[in-house]
Design a protein around this nucleic acid. Sequence first.
DNA 1: TATTGTGAACCGGTTCACAGCG
DNA 2: CGCTGTGAACCGGTTCACAATA
Lengths: 216, 216
Amino acid sequence: MPNPGVPSATVGRLVTYLRLLTELEEEGTRTTSSDELATRAHVSAFQVRKDLAYFGRFGTRGAGYTVATLRRELRRILGLTRPWTVAIVGMGRLGQALADYPNFDLYDFRLRAAFDADPAKAGLHAGGLVIEPIEALADRVAELGVDMAFLTVPASSAQVAADALVAAGVRGILNFAPAVLDVPETVHVEPIDFLAGLKRLAYQMVRPGDDDAAVG
Amino acid sequence: MPNPGVPSATVGRLVTYLRLLTELEEEGTRTTSSDELATRAHVSAFQVRKDLAYFGRFGTRGAGYTVATLRRELRRILGLTRPWTVAIVGMGRLGQALADYPNFDLYDFRLRAAFDADPAKAGLHAGGLVIEPIEALADRVAELGVDMAFLTVPASSAQVAADALVAAGVRGILNFAPAVLDVPETVHVEPIDFLAGLKRLAYQMVRPGDDDAAVG
DNA sequence: TATTGTGAACCGGTTCACAGCG
DNA sequence: CGCTGTGAACCGGTTCACAATA
């Protein structure tokens, strides 16, 4: 019966732990420990245990964690045991690359629609989808029960597109556009901004003195 | 003469402020304020001023900031006034999409080489580049003076590719692979993991109670 | 004995109130 | 008078030491 106030950094790390557990399972490993997960995730074992403690007790003292069990629990915690219906808005190069991406089913993300504002693109195929005109968005989102959208339009139209998605009832946006979106509190946005990442990287390379102390 | 211990969240926000200033400049706005930047970035005005204070004094009391000046200062702080030579490793769909991306020059990121482990891809064109075999990486990185790399290989080969880049002298990696890289402290990594973002989004949608209190 | 689970201490980032100045 | 710049208070996340227990 969880539990408010989970740090968002914790959520990010849980996603990492889940991936590591999947890898361990593929390697045939049956059990693991906070120490092993910590090493692979580049965090401390304290941190791993504290992160898990927000949600319950999943290990056995003296023995560690069962890989399959912990993996199942993390999937449940992260909301990855139910299907999510997804649409793409903006079928430029990035939108098309995402439509072609093969591994969404891995956690039951179901790509069901793709929209573009350019009428010339309507009717073209991308991945297994037919691109639809942006005018169809409201009706189709409602009809398909779209839960979340990949927003891959230019920054200049990101807010307009986000408004349309919100009005249509979408509750989550993975925002690839370099723009801060204004949405109601009931709608969740996760930014994926590689240009911003590139600039953060440039900063780190120009200021080696921040963040970490040098060693030996 | 700055200054250690700048929070990494501050660096991320500086990148946002820079983008907003660029937009303001394009709109023809001459001056702005911590208030205006804060509103557009969805943070508090305190936060804007504190972030800037890590690096100096850029405004005029009573009047605010000159857009052009503050923009120039942020570019300098973020290391965006010098050219960066960039290579792509992994010419799958994502690598090709990045090679085609037109706007790197905007801040003088110069895409100069593209590598792929698949010999069948060597010699193919992508963007303005000819794809080279991965065996050429060490020599070409040294020859071109590559500063940073976009790592767009599958997760299973990410660490091997990172090792090769580090050995070749690359000092920064924009890591698109879903993997935690193990690199020396002198090498900087910035992760861009959209699958992780997707899972964080799923979590938020399943737990509306965390992070923010509901209103109205 | 080994490793988890957790309350408390610590630290760092954010918030704030107000001093400083144009 | 208005808005910036900043030292201090506050708060929340991380670190830690240790109690719990298989």
